[in-house]
Amino acid sequence: MQRVSVHRLGEVLLASLQQELTDSLAVALQQDLTGMAAAGTRGVIIDISQVEIVDSFLARVLAEIAAATRILAGRTVVCGMRPSVAITMVEMGLGLPGLHTTRSLEDALTLLEAGEVSP
């Protein structure tokens, strides 16, 4: 089965989600990230700029990644959400509790490097 690849950039784990993500791929990613996050990892960045929809399942997986990461490694930042996705989530009543959001990958890296913002 294909997987979402996770890259390590120094102390940061980066996962870029593809356009179409099945539920099992999302769950596999959650396991991979939780497995890889360990001492010395500052945080996790999930780039969703290619993602065309976020439904309640993906929202829950993201929140659970954030919760697990908080214990093990630090913060989870979701970056690059598309306007159409943001509008739909708000209309639907979905949020991303426990997650930080940034416009771009650069902003996400800056945020994790700065490190002074409380989780």
Binding site: V78, M81, P83, A86, V90, L96, T101, T102, R103, D107
Partner: peptide, 12 residues
């Protein structure tokens, strides 16, 4: 409120 929430989800 909705607009503000959507702006935040986008990371602004």
């Amino acid at each position: 409120m909705k607009t503000a929430l959507a702006v935040r989800l986008m990371g602004a």
